[in-house]
Design a protein around this nucleic acid. Structure first.
Length: 589
DNA sequence: GCCGTTTTCGGCCCGACTGTTTTCAGTCG
């Protein structure tokens, strides 16, 4: 028996099971900010940020790891003795003493300064130490009075940029739905591609990785004339202001509030630049480390052996130079994709063309804009072979939700139309609310008549975790429920999802043979990529649905596909890629 | 603060741009 074994057992049981991974993420991020302002070792700061990110991506809860005999936090990459102890302290007390001490030394307002573009930890610290500025209001006053400009290392331009930054502080750091970013990016790319000097133009960054939200936009252009593309973007009607411009890089702010980098590289560097600017940062760090190990250097211009470029025209070349096959952008998050690439076990990711069914959509019977016949026609046009019409149950009164009688009449109408339709199977379904008291919104005898029941949370999302769990587990145990839709109920950037033990929910779904939905709507994308991967690992059939409320709403399927690709899903992992005859077997009671 | 068949110390990815400098620190991605 080792001393460590005794220690590990000692604290167990005292842990607060309500600790969320996100609590630890927030504390580690704040510690990183505070330490950075204090001028701590940058690698120490990075250790906190890395740990925060790893924990944010973790498919299981730290509380559960702590409560499981034989599991150690230190087995998580990036978590050592010190951070492991801090997590235990957070589990027991909700905070760590170090955080409280640092908060006393560095006022909140100083941390807030980090959100202003152009202000980093060093300048924020100087403003605090030299001018005793502790709030954004004080900062504004000091910048206006000329005090800031007089400070060593600052000047007129810095003061001016701080005032501008303050005006945008609200917007800064806010992220945009991928779908909204698309409407800004694609027109600018199209215009760039029309320039005679431009050979290639592509969006890189989190946009190319198809993240749910995009913080800023990275445009990569190959051209023998760097001025022309930069001039085009600077004068583009979607652009508000040029923030910085050099020989190869220009940063602008769009009228929509988001910032865009435009980088111009020569053709022979295109692959290296695309790889480099697609990121993620963490993925690239590993790639560059691999290069170092091979005596190479990777930058945005190519892969170099000494001064000789040995690769760079294509991404494939760059990956090959570090001993890897090409990795799809959606996977580039350093979540194991590099190891899988090395082992030759990268998944063949699902594509839009694989989809054959859509099991979640609405009609004019509730809050949809199109009739049953119109939705069926729209689905056929999009090549779907089977769909489920799933209007709301009565609890969703705002959407004119259906009670038992209206639902039965609705099904009768669907049945009549499907009898006259060929080339597509149509299921009489329902999106049944899981009520606050953990019962379902429709009685079992009604649900038993449905071809397809997808159960969802809409109301009472702020209930305590225990009650949410009760609701989800009850729904999963109901024999008529086939799938759980938009699991957490989150609306990205607007409302967090319900608190739950996702591992436990997924295990129950696996045990009871239920499917889990990726809701493809750009504001939902729920279950998320990490959750979908966890569900896949448990053998749960995943479905990707549009939740369409109109015929055009069927087109959001692509966003769900991208989310699934980020989860590393193949067509086999997704149930509604199967032909109808195969899918039908999953519906057997 | 983490990490390790070049281990328990000494590393930790790399470059562009800006503003304030007089050769570079800070910020950003």
């Amino acid at each position: 028996m080792t001393g460590r074994g005794l220690h590990d057992r000692g604290g167990r049981g005292a842990y607060n099971r309500a600790m969320q991974n996100s609590d630890v993420v927030k504390i580690f991020e704040e510690l990183a900010d505070l330490l950075e302002i204090q001028g701590a070792n940058p690698f120490r700061v990075r250790a906190y940020r890395n740990a925060a990110r790893t924990i944010g991506d973790l498919p299981e809860s730290l509380a559960e790891v702590l409560a499981t005999a034989g599991r150690r936090l230190e087995d998580i990459p990036g978590i050592g003795k010190d951070l492991s102890d801090k997590i235990k302290t957070i589990a027991e007390t909700g905070t760590v003493p170090q955080l409280e001490e640092l908060r006393e030394q560095v006022p909140r307002g100083v941390v807030d300064m980090l959100r202003i573009p152009g202000l980093g930890p060093k300048k924020a610290a100087a403003l605090f130490k030299e001018l005793s500025i502790t709030s954004l209001d004080m900062l504004k006053a000091a910048a206006e009075s000329g005090e800031v400009a007089k400070l060593k290392g600052f000047g007129e331009k810095t003061a001016k940029s701080i005032l501008e930054g303050l005006a945008h502080a609200q917007q800064a750091g806010t992220r945009m739905y991928f779908a909204d970013a698309q409407e800004l990016t694609e027109p600018i790319l199209a215009d760039l591609r029309r320039l005679p000097s431009v050979t290639q133009a592509e969006a890189a960054g989190s946009y190319r990785r198809r993240r749910e939200t995009v913080g800023d936009l990275d445009i990569l252009v190959t051209s023998n004339d760097s001025a022309a593309p930069m001039d085009l973007v600077a004068a583009h009607p979607l652009v508000e202001k040029v923030l910085a411009r050099g020989d190869t890089k220009q940063r602008v702010r769009l009228k929509a509030g988001i910032e865009m980098d435009v980088r111009v590289v020569p053709d022979e560097s295109y692959g290296a630049a695309l790889q480099y600017f697609t990121g993620s940062k963490d993925h690239n760090i590993v790639i560059r480390r691999r290069a170092q190990e091979r005596g190479l250097k990777v930058n945005e211009y190519g892969v170099f052996q000494g001064d000789t470029a040995i690769a760079g025209r294509t991404e494939e070349e760059v990956y090959r130079a570090v001993g890897l096959p090409w990795i799809p952008p959606e996977l580039r998050e350093d979540r194991g994709e590099i190891e899988r690439a090395e082992a030759g076990t990268l998944p063949k990711l699902i594509e839009l063309a694989d989809m054959r069914g859509d099991l979640h959509m609405h009609t004019t019977a509730t809050d949809g804009a199109a009739t049953i016949a119109e939705m069926i026609a729209g689905a056929k046009e999009r090549g779907l072979k089977y769909i489920a019409i799933t209007d709301h149950s009565k609890r969703v009164s705002m959407a004119n939700g259906l009670d038992a009688d209206r639902l039965r009449a609705h099904w009768k109408a669907i049945d009549k139309i499907r009898g006259q339709t060929t080339g597509i199977e149509v299921l009489c379904g329902v999106e049944c609310d899981i009520l606050e008291d953990a019962t379902l919104d429709l009685p079992d005898d009604v649900l038993a008549e449905a071809d397809w029941v997808i159960a969802v949370l809409h109301y009472g999302l702020k209930q305590p975790r225990e009650q949410i769990m009760q609701r989800l587990l009850n729904a999963i145990r109901n024999p008529h429920v086939k799938a759980i839709g938009h699991l957490t109920g989150r609306l990205i950037g607007k409302r967090p999802g319900a608190e739950m033990n996702r591992d436990e929910v997924l295990r129950a779904a696996a045990d009871h043979g239920k499917m889990i939905e990726i809701n493809a709507h750009p504001s939902r994308l729920d279950i998320d990529d990490v959750g979908a991967a966890a569900a896949r690992d448990l053998g749960i059939p995943i479905i990707i649905d549009t939740d369409a409320h109109s015929v055009n709403g069927l087109d959001v399927m692509q966003y769900g596909i991208w989310q699934a690709r980020r989860a590393g899903l193949t067509a086999d992992d997704v149930a509604n890629t199967r032909p109808w005859g195969e899918f039908k077997k999953l519906l057997r009671k």
